[in-house]
Design a protein around this nucleic acid. Structure first.
Lengths: 155, 155
DNA sequence: GGCACATGGTTTTATGATGCAACCACACAA
DNA sequence: TTGTGTGGTTGCATCATAAAACCATGTGCC
């Protein structure tokens, strides 16, 4: 088997999320969905991707519970693809990717847009990782621990 | 051409970052590197991936300025792969992926590790997006604006 | 120096994924 | 009923990936 190395059973949460959204198109589809895109043709024209893989990706995202198909909305009998809460939960991932580009891209002048807070129109803050008590954490300030066993009733 | 649809010239910063780290293995390699892995064989055995694509990925990450090759460190004349600042800058992306899995995975009990603050050993806070003035922002509270033209000296 | 072995890859070959174009099914309108 | 637009599926060519074999260099030991 040469199957593209599934991470489905992997214990690492990063690998698990990549299993769902780790391919070239899925995150871009989610990005468009966060901007309100819902229709097949709209995804296809905005992303400029082949229709067959768009169909495959949309199905996979629906299977993963990231998108859901809604029967209609504008009257036409076609279906739409809307984000589930799980899908909207990817927002920090997209923001992190965006901020990484903004901070480290070799040609930042080619980046066309900035993410702003809608109310004030001002750029958002950078995402930062903090400890429970509020201290700012760098990668070196963190470590991994085994997950505590889930408490069972009859234990 | 069927070439895998490069996003190199794309104006969207998310697409640009996916161009560099949007494939199956790169983020996992970076994850290992953040844990201190430096040697080819160490990446290969920990990730269980084919050596040829590991070689291709490492080269690509070096080309993108995410890893750098260091001449040695433990005496042996082999080379090592160490993260650059740009590489360490992906940390929030990995944390966001991890937290997304923790929050939405269908089988969270299979996740083996939790990210804790090294000093206290307590779980870290969730990443959150805030406005300049500190307000917590949801996706709907944000919007995109065209990037302001860079100020030139002779303008 | 010479030999075995480990490290760090490259080459070969098979298969899965991607991209494009063509085709098809259905809804809606004239 | 013919036409048009949306929303896909199917075929085929090409690319990327994976596994295993191979190879080059370094390292340890005598």
């Amino acid at each position: 088997m040469v199957k593209r190395t599934s991470f489905e059973g992997d214990a690492c949460p990063i690998a698990r999320s990549l299993e769902a959204i780790g391919d070239w198109w899925s995150l871009l589809i989610i990005r468009e969905a966060l901007f309100g895109v819902r229709r097949f043709g709209e995804f296809q024209s905005k992303l400029g991707m082949a229709k067959n893989i768009l169909a495959v990706r949309l199905r996979a995202l629906v299977d993963h519970g990231i998108l859901a198909t809604a029967p209609a909305s504008d009257g036409s009998a076609y279906q739409e693809y809307v984000l589930t809460p799980k899908g909207r939960g990817t927002f920090p991932i997209l923001v992190a990717l965006r901020q990484w580009s903004e901070a480290f891209d070799d040609h930042p002048e080619e980046i066309a847009t900035i993410l702003v807070d809608r109310e004030k129109g001002r750029p958002v803050r950078k995402l930062e990782l903090r400890a429970e008590d509020g201290r700012l954490l760098s990668p070196a300030d963190t470590t991994l621990k085994p997950r505590p066993a889930p408490r069972r009733r009859s234990a």
